[in-house]
Design a protein around this nucleic acid. Sequence first.
DNA 1: CGACGCATTGATTGGATTCAACTAAGGTGG
DNA 2: CCACCTTAGTTGAATCCAATCAATGCGTCG
Lengths: 239, 239
Amino acid sequence: MTSALVRKLETFVDLNEAQRTKLDLLCSDVRPVEAKATSFPMGSGPNIFMSWSKAGAAHYKDLPGGSRQITALLLPGDFLDADVTILGRMDHSVSAITRCKVAYIKPDSLNALASEDNLLARAFWWSTLVDEATLRSWLVNLGRRDAYARIANLLCEIHARMTLIGLVREDRLDLPLTQDQIADATGLTAVHTNRTLQRLRADGLIGLGRRMLTVLDVPGLQRVAGFEPTFLHLVRRPG
Amino acid sequence: MTSALVRKLETFVDLNEAQRTKLDLLCSDVRPVEAKATSFPMGSGPNIFMSWSKAGAAHYKDLPGGSRQITALLLPGDFLDADVTILGRMDHSVSAITRCKVAYIKPDSLNALASEDNLLARAFWWSTLVDEATLRSWLVNLGRRDAYARIANLLCEIHARMTLIGLVREDRLDLPLTQDQIADATGLTAVHTNRTLQRLRADGLIGLGRRMLTVLDVPGLQRVAGFEPTFLHLVRRPG
DNA sequence: CGACGCATTGATTGGATTCAACTAAGGTGG
DNA sequence: CCACCTTAGTTGAATCCAATCAATGCGTCG
């Protein structure tokens, strides 16, 4: 099976076998990370990280008062945090949601790869732009949609992103989030998240149980969510 | 008076006279833009834009139903949108809020400047990271703060950013936003925004009238806002 | 002056939170 | 293997924050 990173970048550029090999080589230093581990050695050194196998992680920020906001959901193939080095301090935390694996990459080797191969450089750049577009999309979600559409939208996004990296079969996927974490990502309470998920189930849009999400009505869910995949730049461009 | 761009970058790196001159030269093609103009020729070509003099612009997204979410506020010295070229289509719109001026920069000259001067390259990179940090900060704001703290936070951010570029005197500044636009930025209604602003006034935290904002109690406003300037990386790093 | 953009006020409705209790499922150790 | 404990999910009732729907004031500009 090809790696999630390769699959992801291939939605944007066409890669040849040599390039795929280079990418796999780049990610050869893979280490296991426990669920809920916040001990990615983030500030400690010049490493760059990447989430790898079937897994999830998140950027989040804790607030005085105990509430928490997840600002990004990281799936296999995503860069955990590329730019720690230039900003002296981190403005948010990173945590593994599930047990997962992380590929440790030396920034030098990434830079070398990017400068010797323009196509790969473009692909890396595209990847960070997609991340930014996703941030904007979340902002719209939190600012202007009610709980029902908001959660639907998050589920649509996860469905789309996991489809890209080949982790969806017949619209079924392993949801790497608990209801509590869905709440933290959508800016809702766990209680209201629960009720809203029940409505989505009752309306026949999704099935959800024991961390397994089934999107029963993809266009229906996208419609109530106001979800437009093109805005995340996740669709293959012609040419 | 030194340009907003120079002032902004100098919060991160020390520039010499030659570098300042290069930056000013980079921004020599300045053109006026009308208020509410959405006609930045965004998708049309390979140009890069930069907001310039005393002014404001915004990234926003309109939703079916008529609501709007502002995803970024652009002040003098900010890049309007650096990365249009690589993503075929734009996922959001850009609009001038006030009458302003925009410096049109050819990407080639920006790239040339960045590759011949490592310090400037770092400064540009820092600038985009600050933009991302601001996006995350807004996400926390929309997700986990009530209207009172949320608006306070936005005002704190504007106060901090405009201080950087030298547009604040004795905690007074020209607010480049109407109450409607504050509402669109904070995910609230204009009515509720109005009432909340009145509470902030009544509590002696701010003065606001005819587009002129006075922060009467800076630490007080920051306290109720939960505002931490370090998270936006807007504070001068030692060394 | 009239029109328009912006700000303000009131009354009402509704979505989401809060607080509290309770069930179901999983894991661990005696 | 069952008792125990933890974590995740579910339910109910009361409360509250913010949205909604109008209507009005006010200043500016053509």
